Amino acid sequence: MMGKCLYCILWSVGLFVATFYCLLAQDEEAFDFTGKELLPIAQSHIMPMIMAMALYLWDVLYSLSMQKMNRDRSLFWILAMIIVFMITFVSSILVNCNVLGWVLFILSWLSLTILKYQTTENGQTFPYPISED
């Protein structure tokens, strides 16, 4: 359990730093979009977050294909956190307020981290079952 938590936290922090390193340098105006054009916003906010979610969903598809997850238990969390992610991420861009933007952005990132935690299995599993035909 502790190993799973540590893995998911490190995964989340690593992915955040890798995708949003330039966002961290804009602490005063990171979520103030007054007078900005769409392309810089798409490059600094929208594209990295959509790519992070796409990579996560690819990871979930891989886990499902390996049948490592309890699908009934995880389906609720996957759908709920994707909904929370979408609402909070879009809201972080639309509020046009730096403090509230950061709060909503962090909530969207936490939903992504919860998704990773819910879809990560405990213990050692082998990727391909060996069967005798």
Rank of each mutant, 00 (worst) to 15 (best):
A30W: 01
L57K: 06
M47Q: 11
F33N: 08
M51H: 06
M47T: 15
E28P: 07
L38N: 02
E28D: 12
M51V: 14
L55M: 12
M53T: 13
M51T: 13
L23S: 10
I41Q: 01
L24M: 15
K36H: 08
V60I: 04
A25V: 15
D27T: 11
D32Y: 10
L55A: 09
F33Y: 02
A52I: 04
W58P: 00
E37T: 11
I41T: 03
M51P: 05
P40Q: 02
H45E: 05
A42M: 05
I46Y: 04
M49R: 09
G35S: 03
A30Q: 06
F31M: 02
A25N: 11
I46W: 05
V60M: 01
A42K: 02
E28V: 03
T34N: 07
P40C: 00
G35R: 00
Q26P: 07
K36I: 07
P40A: 00
Q26Y: 11
M53H: 09
M51L: 12
I50V: 12
Q43R: 08
L39Q: 14
L39G: 09
M51C: 13
I41G: 00
A52W: 05
E37V: 05
H45A: 04
I46L: 08
M53A: 14
M49S: 13
P48A: 10
D59R: 12
I41V: 07
Q26S: 15
M49D: 08
E28G: 07
M47I: 15
D32L: 11
M53E: 08
I46M: 02
M49K: 09
